[in-house]
Design a protein around this nucleic acid. Structure first.
Lengths: 293, 293
DNA sequence: ATGAAAGCGCTAACAG
DNA sequence: CTGTTAGCGCTTTCAT
């Protein structure tokens, strides 16, 4: 102990990791760290990781599937003890093949055989049913969807919920436009809606960023919200409550989501497969971009 | 090569790191990943790190100096090749002592002897002088400051610029209230301003989150912005342009900042100390929370 | 050119 | 209970 102080000795975590075959690092892959949805997940995950002695290595893949694979490969070579992947865009086959090589894995918003990875999914289907029901209750009949990437599992679930609910009301989806999941995507989407010439009185968006971009264009074109067109987003990011008019949205407990994913991952690392899959219910938050309940 | 395929061999980065005494990991410490200022820095840093073969290990210290030290220690034990620290809150002594043990380090918004660490600083002093000048030019005479943590170097620089500019106009700072650098901090700050009973016609905020929280309270109390009180934020986060009224602010090139820090760090890792310190000039962005120029 | 061997710093197993 | 040793998987040096 005297020598420790004398030489300012620090244990070398690398060497320790090599010996005990555990790096003490868990990876977290997110599509875009600049999208405010993900930092809260990261924070939840990190808050759960540190007390358990793990360091969180979070990687941003800037919405690029090739980079997603490359990053996952890097993490595996670093012998991370486990990996959490948010909204993976890879094909099932490639994803499962790679993830199988991990000691432990948890997928957020993607399903997988429980032997390969634990899963945490937001029930966007149910959430979107609530959103559509609310719109129809307020006499909206011409509903459009500003969707996300086709490769996104969450996008498919949202669409499924929307179609199902519309069907229940004897309605059809007026328009379905894929958008990149950011403000620019919403701007482009809005233009596509307006240029289509179709009658639209409500737009549901894949996420709040798209909704915010859309809102900007509609206001510019002097379209009254919600009078002419009601808008609903998804995620409930900070900006959703701040824009004008404030945005109705599906709130997702993002920090809880991250923490739950991390706890599940640690359970799997320790070979305790207590819970195999968790489903989180989003909550419909009504603000001025749709009329009251 | 046949065997490589056969056995699905993957090089063990840990073992390699142990041998060559380079982990290939660079650390990035940010005070709060949920504050939209930082994800853009992270992205810039990551985008610069990957082509150079480094993996970015980004750590969130949730505005807690104790955790800041703990995290830095963890990174050192992992033998990271270098560290970038954003807005470090530690005392000079502790910070320098720890950072000295790194192979390479870069500090963002904190100064240090160039032998210990490279630095990237935003010239908040100059930025705030521009902000005050603009307010005074529009006949604001009773200016208050919603500041940040006293331990923040950036806070001191902002205050210095404000005081200097006010002095040049023969004015004094009406009120100086420290706020936690988030929306709640702005809400608390607004209450403190209003309860002070002092006459105030402009408020400059440490960052946009504080300004946004403040804006909410002012609107609630039916105070007209900018007519009664002008508000200026700092950072130009996404939400700044979206709130009502849109927020005037000091724009900082966040992604560039992160990328510049990473390039400087890599230079230092490679023993090329090309640039020792960089100063970034913020840009005054005028929106409706202050009157036009 | 290709191959053998030493050793990075740690832990776990074993001997004293 | 303390002390020694082998070996984790890689790179680098040295001998063939």
């Amino acid at each position: 102990m005297a020598a420790v102080r004398e030489l300012d000795y620090r244990p070398n975590t690398l060497a320790k990791g090599l010996k005990i075959a555990r790096s003490g690092i868990v990876g977290l892959i997110v599509p875009d760290i600049v999208n405010p949805f993900f930092p809260e997940i990261i924070r939840g995950a990190e808050l759960a990781a540190r007390p358990a002695g793990y360091t969180l290595l979070c990687c941003n893949v800037v919405e690029d599937p090739a980079r997603e694979e490359e990053v996952l490969e890097t993490l595996l070579n670093r012998r991370v003890d486990g990996v959490i992947i948010c909204s993976a865009r890879m094909s099932d086959k490639r994803l499962f093949d790679t993830v199988k090589r991990c000691k432990a894995a948890v997928l957020i918003n993607r399903s997988a055989p429980k032997s390969i990875a634990g899963t945490i999914e937001v029930d966007y289907r149910r959430g979107m049913i609530a959103a559509v029901d609310h719109l129809v209750r307020n006499d909206r009949r011409h509903i459009a969807y500003a969707g996300g990437h086709a490769t996104s599992r969450g996008d498919q679930q949202r669409r499924q919920g929307i179609l199902e609910a519309l069907d229940g009301h004897g309605l059809e989806l007026v328009l379905d436009v894929p958008c990149s999941p950011d403000i620019q995507g919403g701007v482009a989407g809005a233009t596509a809606f307006l240029d289509s010439g179709r009658q639209i009185d409500a737009i549901i968006c894949y996420n709040d960023l798209i909704a915010i971009g859309l809102l900007g264009v509609l206001k510019e074109r002097s379209i009254a919200i919600p009078h002419d067109i009601a808008v609903i987003g998804c995620d409930d990011i900070l900006a959703a409550s701040l824009v004008n008019p404030p945005l109705s949205t599906l709130r997702v407990a993002k920090e809880d989501l991250g923490a739950a994913a991390m706890r599940m991952l640690i359970d799997r690392i320790d070979q305790r497969h207590i819970q195999q899959g968790i489903v989180i219910e989003p909550e419909l938050v009504l603000r001025a971009s749709t009329e009251g309940p």
